[in-house]
């Protein structure tokens, strides 16, 4: 099947013979379909990308046997598409553009097959079927890679936001504070715990104030997390003060039946600070 002949009996032979023309027509098709986003990629880059993909496809087809995207012949093609997709994600491209980039190769491919197989309808159908399968699968692969890359970006951003949302500040020698704003889910509560414990080691803190003024609601789970955090802080040799407990949250905690033994609580950040100063032996004097 993959035997070469002067008759140009296979897809790879056609590709090799008409390489430059196919590349040019592919670029034109991309342009027509609006895939060529010159603000994202320069003409030069697009040309280089397309050329290397086409060459890689040609090389992969030269390999023996049935077409299987999973075979190692196709690794280089997939690697290229992956890199291109990742770049598109980075530069704000869409999934349609990314997928259409490869799908637009169909038209020139079919066109050239038609030219060479004019009189042999059956061969033509075979080769069109083959190239269609190849391009479709590459298109689906591109789509998957694009989504994976975007998921990775989202996860990265979530991690960054998580860091931003749990800032630990040193308010005094030996005192660190962590003002919490927004809802506390399990993952964030875990992050809070980690950050505050790391900060205690780094700053050699004696007291850690967790201020929950900006936390809208405290349920059993959140209360449990706060108690665990306080227990871990104590294990490390520091003391935890939870401040910013509103009258409503105080009621909720009691109604929930959550016990907060050994956890020092204060209504406001101010009184928590006062307590902290007192504990480390400082007094605040008015002017």
């Amino acid at each position: 099947m993959t035997e070469e002949s002067n008759e140009l009996s296979t897809l790879v032979a056609v590709l090799r013979a008409d390489y430059d023309a196919i590349l040019d027509e592919w670029l034109a098709a991309q342009s027509d379909e609006g895939v060529r986003r010159t603000e994202l990629f320069s003409e030069r880059e697009i040309r280089d990308q397309s050329r290397s993909v086409l060459s890689a496809i040609q090389d992969a087809l030269t390999g023996n046997g049935e077409f299987r995207l999973e075979s190692e012949d196709w690794e280089p093609v997939k690697d290229l598409l992956k890199t291109i997709s990742q770049e598109r994600v980075d530069r704000g491209g869409t999934i349609e553009e990314s997928t259409r980039f490869i799908l637009t190769l169909k038209q020139p491919m079919f066109e050239h097959l038609k030219r060479h197989f004019r009189s042999r309808i059956e061969d033509l159908l075979d080769e069109i079927w083959l190239s269609s399968r190849i391009i479709d699968q590459l298109g689906m692969y591109t789509m998957r890679v694009f989504l994976e890359e975007r998921d990775a970006v989202i996860r990265r951003q979530q991690a960054e936001m998580m860091d931003l949302s749990t800032p630990v500040v040193q308010v005094w020698d030996g005192i660190v504070a962590l003002p919490l704003i927004g809802t506390l889910d399990s993952e964030r509560a875990q992050m809070v715990m980690e950050n505050v414990l790391e900060a205690i080691v780094e700053r050699e803190a004696l007291i850690a104030i967790i201020d929950i003024t900006g936390v809208p609601a405290v349920d059993t789970l959140v209360a449990q997390h706060l108690i665990k955090t306080a227990a871990a802080i104590r294990l490390m040799g520091a003391e935890c003060v939870i401040s910013g407990i509103s009258p409503r949250i105080a009621q909720t905690i009691v109604h929930l039946g959550v016990d907060m033994p050994e956890v020092v609580t204060r209504g406001s950040l101010e009184s928590a600070l006062q307590y902290a100063f007192q504990t480390i032996g400082l007094t605040v004097r008015g002017k």
């Binding site: 715990m193 980690e194 414990l197 790391e198 205690i200 080691v201 665990k228 227990a231 871990a232 802080i233 294990l235 490390m236």
Partner: peptide, 8 residues
């Protein structure tokens, strides 16, 4: 820190 959290 990691030991404290795990113990808790």
């Amino acid at each position: 820190p990691a030991v404290a959290m795990t113990l808790v």
